Simulated scan of single mutants.
Amino acid sequence: MDQTPTQQQAGITRPEAPEAPAETRRDFLKLTTGAFAAVGVGVVAWPFIHSMNPARDTLAMATIEIDLSPIAEGQAVTAMLRGKPIFVRHRTAAEIQAARATPMSELKDPAPDQGRVQRDAWLVLVGVCTHLGCVPLGQRAMDNRGDYGGWFCPCHGSHYDTSGRVRKGPAPTNLPVPTYTFISPTQIRVG
């Protein structure tokens, strides 16, 4: 029987496979291509995302500051915020007393006066009737202030008291109190 020598007996050795390096050129190219693709998506998407930010004129209208020092006791001013009138009234002691003396049972939308003001003398309201969105009278001394000395909406006959609470008429709720803060003793920021 003829015996063929094995490769090892014949002195033939197989070369061992070299160990693969941890990062090959192909891995580097994949990583680089992925990074460029991510940057490209960001460059294309940024204008779209940025277009969703509010415009500068909208941001400028987001808050207003009102100087209270020229407003005499018993006087009211109107400012505009986002297209809505903001009523600021420097209430007299009699107006504050009338608002505090009102029993909650007489109110359509019960709310204590103390919960509607930050400082007793200053009342800040959104001047839009809660019935159909009219602007009530009562900001000027010559205006009809209604049966309760606050505001009167002549369109449908809603009457508000000296705290902006609805007392009579079709309006379902009180005049809203906007978000505001005193930034000094004589200045407020609304919005």
Score class of each variant (00 low, 15 high):
2 D>P: 04
5 P>E: 01
5 P>A: 02
6 T>L: 00
7 Q>S: 06
9 Q>R: 00
9 Q>K: 01
10 A>C: 03
10 A>I: 00
14 R>Y: 08
14 R>K: 12
17 A>I: 13
18 P>Q: 10
18 P>C: 02
22 A>F: 14
22 A>L: 15
23 E>I: 08
24 T>H: 01
25 R>W: 11
25 R>G: 07
27 D>W: 00
30 K>P: 01
30 K>C: 09
31 L>S: 12
32 T>N: 12
33 T>Q: 14
34 G>C: 06
36 F>A: 09
36 F>D: 01
37 A>I: 15
38 A>K: 04
39 V>I: 15
42 G>A: 13
43 V>A: 10
44 V>T: 07
45 A>R: 07
55 A>M: 13
56 R>M: 08
59 L>T: 05
59 L>M: 07
61 M>I: 04
64 I>N: 06
68 L>V: 04
69 S>H: 06
70 P>N: 12
73 E>L: 01
75 Q>Y: 03
76 A>D: 01
76 A>N: 05
77 V>N: 06
87 F>G: 03
88 V>S: 01
89 R>N: 12
90 H>C: 01
91 R>G: 04
91 R>W: 15
92 T>L: 07
92 T>W: 05
94 A>V: 10
95 E>W: 10
95 E>K: 03
96 I>A: 08
97 Q>P: 00
99 A>S: 10
101 A>S: 15
101 A>H: 14
101 A>I: 05
104 M>T: 03
104 M>Y: 02
104 M>C: 00
104 M>N: 00
104 M>E: 13
105 S>A: 13
109 D>E: 04
110 P>K: 00
112 P>H: 02
114 Q>S: 15
114 Q>W: 10
115 G>N: 14
115 G>A: 14
116 R>S: 02
117 V>H: 09
119 R>Q: 15
123 L>G: 14
123 L>C: 09
124 V>W: 13
127 G>R: 12
129 C>R: 00
130 T>L: 05
130 T>P: 06
131 H>V: 07
131 H>T: 00
134 C>I: 10
135 V>F: 08
137 L>S: 13
138 G>C: 09
138 G>A: 09
139 Q>R: 10
140 R>V: 01
140 R>N: 15
141 A>T: 11
142 M>V: 13
142 M>E: 15
151 W>S: 06
153 C>N: 07
154 P>F: 14
154 P>Q: 10
159 H>I: 14
159 H>R: 09
160 Y>K: 08
160 Y>C: 03
160 Y>L: 08
161 D>R: 07
161 D>P: 09
164 G>E: 03
165 R>Q: 04
168 K>P: 01
168 K>Y: 08
169 G>M: 08
175 L>N: 00
176 P>D: 08
177 V>T: 10
179 T>G: 04
179 T>A: 09
179 T>M: 01
180 Y>Q: 06
180 Y>F: 13
182 F>C: 06
182 F>Q: 05
184 S>L: 05
185 P>V: 07
186 T>L: 11
187 Q>F: 04
188 I>W: 13
189 R>Y: 02
189 R>T: 05
189 R>D: 05
190 V>I: 09
190 V>R: 11
